[in-house]
Each structure stands twice: as C-alpha cells, then as structure tokens.
Amino acid sequence: MAHTFPELVIGGVLLAPFVTYLAITLAVVMVLRPLLHVVGFAKLFSHAPVAELSLFVTVLGMLMLLF
C-alpha cells in the first residue's frame, strides 16, 4: 500500500508536501531562536549560523519522518 501525501492547494496551485514541511520548520525554528538565545546556544559553537542551519535541517528531517 502506497502512502499518499497531502498536497497544499493555494489559489488552485498544487504545492508539494515538502513546501508545507519547509513552512512548518521555519515557524518552529523562529519560535526556538529566542529560547536558544537565552540558553546561550550561539556561544557553544565557533560558527553559530552553521549550527542554526543544522538545527533547521534536523527539524525538517524529523518532520518528514514523522508525517
């Protein structure tokens, strides 16, 4: 049995589920950023933007695996 992916329809245009996952991931990371700033996440890494990018990719991967 094949898994059907729900597509997002905006103005009659079908968008791939990946676009939905990207939007959800962006929202999750934007909520996490202030919390990570309070905790001092950026001070743990020599290049903080790369660490935030890896966090974004990790959250995106988890969403894709869960849904």
Rank of each mutant, 00 (worst) to 15 (best):
G61F: 07
A42W: 10
P49C: 08
F45H: 10
V57N: 06
M62Q: 09
E52N: 08
H37G: 06
A51I: 00
L65N: 05
M62G: 05
H37K: 13
L55S: 00
F56Q: 01
S46V: 12
V57L: 15
L36Y: 12
L55F: 04
L53N: 14
A42I: 04
M62S: 06
L65S: 11
G40L: 10
G61V: 05
K43V: 11
F41I: 03
K43F: 14
T58R: 03
L66D: 06
L65K: 08
L44C: 12
G61I: 02
F41S: 08
L66H: 09
H37D: 08
L53S: 14
L63P: 00
M62K: 01
P49V: 04
A42G: 12
H37A: 14
V50W: 12
L65G: 12
F41E: 06
L66M: 13
K43N: 15
L66E: 13
L36D: 04
L60Q: 04
V50I: 02
G40H: 10
H47F: 13
T58C: 07
F56L: 08
H47S: 04
L63E: 00
V39A: 08
T58W: 05
L53M: 15
V59C: 08
A51M: 02
L55K: 02
M64E: 03
V38Q: 13
S54A: 14
F41V: 01
L36K: 02
G40V: 06
A48K: 14
T58I: 03
G61E: 02
A48S: 12
G40T: 03
L60M: 15
P49W: 13
V38Y: 05
F45E: 08
G61Q: 01
L60N: 01
H37T: 05
E52S: 04
K43H: 15
M62V: 04
M64R: 12
P49S: 05
M62A: 09
L53H: 13
V39T: 01
S46L: 14
F41H: 07
S54Y: 08
G40R: 07
